[in-house]
């Protein structure tokens, strides 16, 4: 047990943990405000919707698929809510309608991917453009605001102590998805399918049902994240959350999840989230602009796969010389 934990620490998660420690120490030396409760909450709040969606994306990528449409589903859900609210529907019902739009998007994605067998990259690329289109049709170029006070408070103020609703949802999802992925039968199936789709199919795994479940769950989580985003901003526009999909996928891949499916775990993604949030926050405190932050994270993403490959190549060459 301890040996297994130690082995894991020497691997990917250990690397991320070391990186995290370095970042935290540097940040602490840099700014006295860094470890304050306010800054920690703020650090999570700034990217909270992305990291919520990234948790579900982890399962999709381990399953050997990808969902490019999440950011557009976020936008669509927020726009469905705003449009129905503006049309006179009470806000709770408008939020329900938004969640229903998420379910619909998930069913559409899942149908084409799981039952027709189209590549998820193509289907969700169509979804990325199409669902954004629905958002644009509903809201056009307006910004819809003026929601009841409780809605904005839900997105911006602490619900339990300083923890906002979004942060509580994130923590709960992390726990639940961790249990599902690493402790439940469904989680094993996600890995089995991601490792070898054909073998899984011939072993009688209900591949279609698992994939359908994952894509519906992904879209529903994205729809929820869209609502949380709307509550935090207090205003909804057609281009909301545009381009988030790339950031979300970056978080998951930096967490050591293989883009080819079958390997990776939620702990790695959790660490990757902490690394990215603290790195961005630290760079922000050091007055480094958003674009440079994004470049640094892009470089980190490439290095995260490149470095182990180089290390392995050197190791093989070194071994070969010895014998």
């Amino acid at each position: 047990m301890i040996a297994a934990a130690f082995a894991r620490l020497r691997g990917w998660e250990g690397l991320l943990l070391a990186l995290l420690v370095v970042i935290v120490v540097v940040n602490m030396a840099h700014s006295p405000y860094y470890l304050g409760v306010g800054n920690i909450i703020n650090l999570f709040q700034l990217e909270i919707e992305k990291i919520i969606v990234a948790l579900m994306m982890t399962l999709i990528i381990i399953n050997g698929e990808i969902d490019l449409s999440v950011a557009s589903v976020m936008g669509m859900s927020a726009c469905v809510m705003a449009w129905s609210f503006r049309a006179g529907v009470p806000l709770p019902w408008a939020m329900l309608a938004a969640m229903a739009s998420g379910v619909a998007a998930g069913l559409i994605n899942g149908f084409w991917i799981a039952y027709v067998g189209l590549p998820s990259l193509a289907v969700t690329l169509a979804g990325l453009i199409g669902y954004r289109g629905v958002a644009r049709i509903l809201v056009q170029d307006r910004a819809i605001g003026d929601y009841p006070g409780w809605f904005n408070a839900l997105g911006q103020q602490g619900l339990v102590g300083p923890l906002t609703l979004s942060i509580i949802i994130f923590l709960a999802m992390f726990a639940v998805l961790g249990l599902v992925l690493h402790g439940a039968a469904l989680g094993r199936l996600v890995y089995v399918i991601g490792n070898n789709l054909q073998a899984a199919r011939y072993s009688g795994v209900r591949v279609r049902r698992v994939k359908m479940t994952l894509f519906v769950a992904s879209a529903v989580v994205a729809a929820l994240a869209g609502l949380l985003y709307a509550a935090r901003l207090g205003s909804v526009r057609g281009d909301m959350a545009q381009g988030f999909e790339l950031d979300i996928i970056t978080i998951v891949l930096l967490g050591g999840v293989s883009i080819f499916g079958g390997s990776g775990n939620l702990l790695g993604v959790g660490l990757s989230i902490l690394v990215i949030l603290n790195l961005r926050n630290g760079m922000g405190l050091a007055d480094i602009t958003g674009n440079t932050q994004t470049s640094v994270i892009g470089a980190l993403l490439i290095l995260s796969v490149l470095a182990p490959n180089i290390a392995q190549a050197i190791h093989i060459r070194w071994k070969g010389r010895e014998t």
Partner: peptide, 23 residues
């Protein structure tokens, strides 16, 4: 040569090239 999947490499350089341009 680095054997990094192209989607990861170009997702990274998408951000890096844009960042370099802004700087």
């Amino acid at each position: 040569w680095g054997r990094v999947p192209s989607i990861i490499v170009t997702l990274g350089t998408l951000a890096i090239f844009r960042g370099l341009l802004v700087d």
